[in-house]
């Protein structure tokens, strides 16, 4: 694949992300797309650790570490401060995990996008509270093992559809992206950067440690999430215009599930049920995009 003008590296080696960490790959792509004129707001998440213990930083842009629930509010403040200084060029991005987005930071996020603050809110989604020890979040998918959904008590609730929740705010731009599709991801970040108002990016970021997968498989599994329609790539403009970016050949979801330790307990009947849920969601998305199944 040819990705030009992305040679500038704004992330350093020596960070303490786990081997094969999808969240660091996501960060690299996003920073390459945004460039140096970026301020990052970092509520509590894996990246609070990966960005380095004081006085180190693994990022070559200004980063504000902030409280778990304040990703939307802090970004609003930073944006206001930059505007006061007359700096409308610098991009403000909140970089939060799924816990800080789906659960703990949802109120501040909803408030910020309701005000249509001019910033990007990027959620790198590894589907549980990974850096505190793999506790389930409202992003954890149906069927998954976590340290709080163990044994027979695996999560039997659906993953929250965060993009639809943001779309309901009628923000200018909301999109999904995936680390296995860098061209698509980088295009979306650049597009978001160029739009004024609130932008939301939901980035799939695999987690070898929490998902019980080999580190070298994290891209392969991320790709399969798209290929199986578990994580479709699409974007929504102004809350109404849907575009599906990738029409997969529709591999069976069991191919995705059987590679991951967190789903090992699932039986064929469970997988059939999950397949139906995925098909249903995909049908719904097609309808919203005005396409036929």
């Amino acid at each position: 694949m040819q990705l030009d003008a992305l040679d500038k590296e704004l992330m350093c080696s020596g960070h303490v992300g786990c081997p094969g960490c999808g969240a660091t790959i996501a960060m690299r792509f996003v920073l390459k797309a945004l460039g140096e004129k970026t301020v990052m707001v970092l509520p509590a998440c894996c990246w609070s650790v990966i960005a380095g213990p004081f006085p180190q930083s693994s990022l070559k842009i200004p980063v504000i570490h902030t409280a778990f629930e304040t990703g939307g509010a802090t970004a609003s403040g930073v944006r206001a401060a930059l505007d006061m200084k007359g700096d409308t060029e610098t991009t403000v991005i909140t970089w939060a995990g799924d816990g800080g987005t789906f659960d703990i930071g949802f109120q501040a996020l909803s408030g910020a996008v309701e005000r249509n603050e001019d910033f990007i809110y990027a959620c790198y989604d590894n589907e549980a509270y990974m850096n505190t020890g793999i506790q389930r979040s409202s992003s954890t998918p149906y069927g998954a093992w976590t340290t709080t959904t163990t044994g027979a008590d695996w999560k039997k609730l659906r993953k929250k559809n965060i993009v639809e929740a943001l779309v309901a705010h009628r923000i200018p731009y909301a999109a999904t992206a995936n680390i296995a599709f860098p061209e698509d991801l980088i295009r979306k970040v650049k597009k978001a950067k160029a739009i004024r108002g609130s932008k939301f990016l939901h980035i799939y970021a695999s987690c070898p440690t929490g998902w019980r997968i080999p580190s070298e498989m994290s891209i392969k599994i991320a790709r399969m999430a798209v290929q199986t329609n578990i994580f479709p790539l699409y974007e929504v403009e102004n809350g109404v215009n849907y575009t599906i970016n990738y029409k997969p050949k529709e591999y069976l979801v069991r191919e995705y599930f059987k590679l991951q330790g967190r789903f090992r307990h699932l039986k064929d009947t469970d997988l059939d049920q999950i397949q139906e849920m995925v098909n249903e969601d995909w049908g719904l998305l097609l309808r919203k995009a005005g396409e036929h199944a």
Binding site: C12, S13, G14, H15, V16, P19, G52, F54, P55, Q56, S57, S58, K60, V63
Partner: peptide, 16 residues
């Protein structure tokens, strides 16, 4: 407001 002053490059993670 504490500010970082060095990069993480002093951690030679190759030892992992």
């Amino acid at each position: 407001m504490p500010r970082t002053s060095v990069t993480t490059e002093s951690n030679k993670t190759g030892s992992w």
